[in-house]
């Protein structure tokens, strides 16, 4: 190797070295990044352990379950309290039936209140799960007691309306008899009064049927056939009450017709009396 060769090698090294430095630097940097990432992941896994992550998820699930359960329990307690206040005012259904309804409602309120307290205090997921499931299971009692009580309350009010209607019917009967005895033709109005009586009797029978078909129903305790039978009976009770209500609405229209007829006949009789008096005076 001549001197010229040595000089060329030296010049090449002098020029190429700065170009190679970044390559080494980058290689080092990449290596550091990888190590840092690996270390960081390792560190994360070490610091936040698997058990801690599961616990946080479970707590969140339990909290969500508690909130939903509380909402449903409060909704039911509110509805039961409201219908209990309503049923305490009824006067026409039998004392025994009223007592039974009141007892059932109170038992439901007590059970739901206790369940709510238990769920709030549950610390174990499985226990909470069982308690929350019992809300769904107990719904069948709620689904029976509520319509059963509403039907009884409606039948009670219907009995009051029927009593008023019978009272009005008796008064109209007296008035029509008086007018008939005085010589007025009230035959059409008497027929209307008779139709009114038929509607009232029909309403009374249907209201009674609604109570009869629903009063003795008991919770199905998971029996699907019994559940279907209960539902059918409740719907039958509801349909009877709606039909009875329509009868009373029709009967109310007859009252308007009869009153209008009484006024017209009275006005006509009064006008005739006035004319007679005028003729006699002349």
């Amino acid at each position: 190797m001549t001197r010229t060769h040595y000089i060329k090698i030296l010049i090449s090294l002098f020029i190429g070295a700065p170009l190679l430095v970044p390559v080494f630097a980058m290689a080092q940097l990449n290596s550091a990044d990888i190590n840092a990432t690996v270390n960081a992941k390792a560190e994360v896994r070490t610091n936040a352990g698997t058990g801690a992550t599961l616990s946080a998820t479970t707590t969140a699930r339990m909290e969500k379950a508690r909130t939903k359960a509380a909402q449903e329990i409060e909704r039911r307690i509110e509805a039961l309290t409201k219908i209990n206040a309503r049923i305490s005012e009824v006067t026409k259904i039998s004392d025994q039936f009223k007592t039974n309804l009141n007892t059932n409602i109170q038992n439901q309120i007590t059970a739901l209140t206790a369940l709510k307290v238990k769920i709030e205090g549950d610390t174990d997921l499985n226990t909470l799960k069982t308690d929350v499931q019992s809300i769904t299971k107990s719904y069948r009692v709620f689904a029976l007691v509520m319509p059963q009580t509403h039907i009884a309350a409606m039948a009670d009010r219907m009995a009051t309306a029927i009593n008023i209607m019978i009272g009005v019917g008796n008064k109209l009967q007296t008035r029509l008899t008086e007018m008939q005895n005085a010589g007025s033709d009230v035959s059409t109005l008497i027929t209307t009064l008779s139709d009114m009586g038929t509607k009232i009797s029909d309403a009374q029978a249907k209201a009674q049927a609604a109570v009869n078909v629903t009063a003795t129903l008991v919770p199905d305790d998971g029996d699907k056939e019994k559940m279907a039978a209960n539902k059918a009976a409740l719907r039958e009770g509801r349909d009877n009450l709606n039909a009875a209500h329509q009868d009373l609405v029709d009967a109310r229209k007859y009252i308007t017709t009869i009153l209008k007829g009484i006024r017209e006949i009275s006005a006509s009789a009064s006008a005739s009396a006035d004319t007679s008096a005028t003729v006699e005076t002349q």
Partner: peptide, 16 residues
């Protein structure tokens, strides 16, 4: 209307 509401009532689905 109250009778109808009580007959058509549905339970709030629960989660656990």
């Amino acid at each position: 209307a109250s009778v109808d509401t009580s007959l058509n009532d549905a339970a709030v689905p629960q989660e656990y």
